[in-house]
Design a binder for these strands. Structure first.
Lengths: 356, 356
DNA sequence: TAGCACAAATTTACCGCTACATATGAAATG
DNA sequence: CATTTCATATGTAGCGGTAAATTTGTGCTA
């Protein structure tokens, strides 16, 4: 059995509370006593039982993180950002992946709350705030920050990226590249999906482009579904000459479909993704994409959550949006800008590579 | 304040213990009573306080996972495998990334033990078992499984891949492709690094190939370090005509260096990585690599850990090795096999794509 | 020298739950 | 009818800490 405070106390002939205070650097302990206690604790390899401490202290130093998919490099990077910000303060992270399933997500949140995590960071799989979710989160005094996908309109802390703008940037870029029949492999109707779709429409409208309804279809959120969806787009007549994809994996799947159909990216069909996942610059056709400041999303979410936890009074909800940035690579570069410009674009794509 | 068992007990006019037993389906409670208790609990939205339960029950239903890098898709996938196996049994995962730093890793493990996790799964950053690590793990009654990298020789549970064989397969493949000056961008001296290096040497020896000492240099474990290391290899005279890289990120970096130097992959230099990370088949030059059954590593590790936790008596340490598998893609295909063969190889590469 | 202020140490009372031991009472036994 | 038996229900005693109230003891003032 491991050493307990009680053991140290008896060993030293002092009271339990003296030990407790001494170890936590609480005031009200003589310097001399504190030294003796700390030394003995070190000698005995004492480690406080964090479970007991959590129960008595109403503080677990655990943060729950709920994401749709651990494997997706976006969430992996977010998780890394969160951990980086939280670990120095002594917090650890309980990670749950919902597999994009609302039920699983809800169960995970419930379990995390039962575990008395000090806070939650959630990238929800739910398209809208379900009643149960709201009750769960607002019912208790839970501190939480939503990331990536908005679920509770306005009322909650949120850190993410301006998805509308992302969609707009990507689509306008395709237009500038001379595409006129621009399709969109949209995501599910979570806020990121909705935002990118809205931006896509906004860009088309601004430039007076009309596209058939069938040009917007669901591409799922991974390469396999993107592949399938793109095959359907390829059947259309006239077929699109540009595609904005919900995310990079979908775009990668789409490119595979296009290339397998014997067509050229970008000249037959230009492709833009979103997320700038790792190695998207090293792909067969380097992928143009929208860069999301992923690490920062994680860090800010952690930062914000810490503030909520530390503060005594509930803070007014904050909403942090990072601006997306267009990264041009070969998959959309069908129509090279004037000679002087091409160097700049490529150079910036190059820089992009080494930025990581 | 949330509802407690005590509240339900008073409400129903039964004792606390009756409630406790009823809710956990313990024997010794009348069916009728159990129903009443459970119903009231549901009505009041009772959720057991898991902290208290852990403290009293000596069981936290938490598993600690320590990995060098969350962002690395290998570990992300392992984590996914672990979670998939553990979540159904009610366990959750506390994840820590050490950033390949031994000190950080040790601190994380200490913290996890102080939290009284029921078990640990560790992919250690340490090249050898440090004394403190052994004391920590063997000192208490901690259940743990090492993955990917062996640290405690033989005495511990371990799940991983046969790295020696991986190195051998990769190198022999390069030899079969006609390479004679095969370099190795080795990893650090963790067991995976050592194993792959040994396999590399074994393959060279078997085929009577001698290479200069400078052909084996450290390539770090990410694309940026692989890029730098490859640039150094390119200075050598004669320069290598094949490189086996510690892992895929390093291989990707190496390919970048080679291509930027104006050389061709695979004809000037053939490249093989290890890990078969996502999208390595969609790279500019699709990467030949060694496939590690990553998800399975995670699942078996979780499985093994569960057995250790469930079993009363300490089980004898087990050691599970998955066989690596060569995946041939363009980056090493310089010397096409006989016509009848080429279809097969490509077909298998193709299958590989869709296997995920 | 009684009285007071103050720091240092201790005592008491939990946190919310579980394990283990004990009590209760109705049916079964001789 | 006293006694054993059994299923059910209840106390008691923690798990290993923390917070808040209380005691102890010292030096200082009036």
């Amino acid at each position: 059995m491991p050493v307990r405070m009680k053991d140290i106390a008896e060993d030293l002939g002092v009271s339990l509370m003296t030990v407790s205070k001494a170890l936590r650097n609480h005031p009200g302990v003589a310097e001399e006593t504190r030294r003796r206690v700390c030394q003995r604790a070190r000698e005995l390899d004492y480690e406080p039982n964090l479970i007991a401490r959590s129960l008595a202290g109403h503080r677990s130093f655990l943060i729950g993180l709920v994401v749709p998919d651990l494997m997706h490099s976006f969430f992996a990077e977010v998780a890394k950002g969160i951990e980086g910000r939280l670990a120095p303060s002594g917090y650890q992270i309980v990670i749950c992946s919902s597999g994009e399933d609302t039920e699983t997500e809800l169960r995970a949140i419930k379990l995390l709350l039962a575990r008395k995590v000090d806070g939650l960071i959630i990238a929800s799989a739910a398209p809208h705030a379900s009643r149960s979710m709201v009750e769960l989160l607002e019912g208790g005094k839970a501190r939480y920050v939503l990331i990536d996908r908005v679920v509770l309109n306005g009322k909650a802390n949120y850190v993410g990226v301006n998805d509308d703008k992302a969609g707009f940037l990507a689509t306008e870029h395709l237009i500038e590249q001379g595409c006129t029949r621009i399709a969109h492999l949209r995501g599910s109707m979570v806020s990121t999906g909705r935002g990118r779709l809205r931006g896509y429409h906004r860009a088309l409208a601004k430039h007076g482009l009309k596209v058939p309804l069938e040009y917007v279809i669901s591409g799922g959120h991974q390469d396999s579904t993107g592949y399938d969806a793109m095959q359907r787009l390829l059947q259309l007549n006239p077929r699109p000459d540009g595609v904005f994809c919900y995310n990079d994996p979908v775009a990668i799947g789409a490119m595979r479909a296009i290339i397998e159909a014997g067509l050229d990216v970008p000249h037959d069909i230009a492709v833009v993704g979103a997320g700038n996942i790792r190695y998207s610059d090293m792909l067969h056709v380097p992928l143009s994409t929208i860069n999301y400041s992923t690490l920062q999303v994680g860090q800010s979410a952690a930062e914000l959550l810490l503030q909520c936890i530390e503060s005594k009074t509930p803070l007014p909800p904050k909403r942090i949006l990072f601006p997306p940035r267009l990264v041009v690579r070969k998959s959309s570069l069908r129509h090279p800008p004037p000679a002087s410009g091409i160097g700049r674009v490529l150079a910036s794509a190059q820089l992009q590579k080494h930025a990581r």
